[in-house]
Design a binder for these strands. Structure first.
Lengths: 141, 141
DNA sequence: CGTTTTACTTAGCAAGGCTAATGAGGTAGA
DNA sequence: TCTACCTCATTAGCCTTGCTAAGTAAAACG
């Protein structure tokens, strides 16, 4: 049984290597990482989000998120609608074009990783899914 | 139960986020990701590298790598020495200060992650350890 | 030799991170 | 009520770090 420090080193190296490998798989697409991440949040969790909520979710400053959202709005993938109750807020939601591009991009983008996961046993995939959750928990500490 | 494509997306995002978080734990706040990556290559593989080799290793253009190396040279973490045989090449190698900053950064990164792992249950740590193995397997495909 | 190739460098553009500052809308206390 | 403060979104402007195009120097080749 490895020590916790050894597990740390292993996990760190595996994370860096997989991240690099995934980055290298990045296909040619019009959407940048940051842009796709925003569309992904809106798509998966549905409904609308405010700018501040999106910025917090992606751990990015409000102005940075504003720029990304501007870009996506110009591309017609999302719309801002002023909040009826609190006029300071603008509710951001996907357009049909936004939903379409997310659907189209997900399969293409993760094609490589999906293929790798399909080659694993159901149990191993479950382990990786649980690990992804745990990694998410670690990050928020 | 999530689809394999959804698991893919989750794992990719978790990997990127954890990698980003780990990278944030660096010894010298003045050192950027790209810069530390170069020092890391020189440290792990020892000896010297040419600019082109570093650019290929980091999958970055030669001019980009040139700028990064310029910056590290100014900071005193590496030195260029003209190749005696082929005068076009400049051999890039770590200084003592460069080795020190890499050692300090590695320790700090693992310290942070080790603390996080210690807070988990034994089972969760085992899941992450197994996941690290699986990730290693995926990378070699 | 002269031409081509290779290695590095310089110049300039784009993307996307940040902070500071602004404006407009909401909230609360004297 | 009205003033002071807070919050949300945005604009302006800076920095880093990708990129390509183009330039220089050295090596290799025919």
């Amino acid at each position: 049984m490895a020590t916790i420090a050894e597990q740390s080193a292993e996990l760190r190296m595996a994370t860096f290597r997989l991240a690099r490998r995934l980055r290298a798989q990045k296909a040619d697409q019009a959407l940048s990482d940051a842009q796709f991440a925003v569309l992904g949040v809106l798509y998966r969790h549905g409904g609308t989000r405010t700018l501040t909520e999106l910025a917090e979710q992606e751990q990015v400053s409000a102005p940075s998120m504003n720029r990304t959202v501007n870009c996506l709005e110009e591309s017609g993938y999302l719309v801002r609608t002023a909040d009826e109750v609190d006029r300071r807020k603008s509710n951001i939601s996907l357009t049909d074009a936004g939903r379409d591009v997310v659907k189209a991009t997900i399969t293409k983008r993760d094609a490589w990783l999906t293929t790798r996961l399909r080659e694993l046993s159901k149990e191993d995939r479950a382990t990786l899914a649980r690990a992804a959750e745990l990694m998410g928990g670690i990050i928020t500490q």
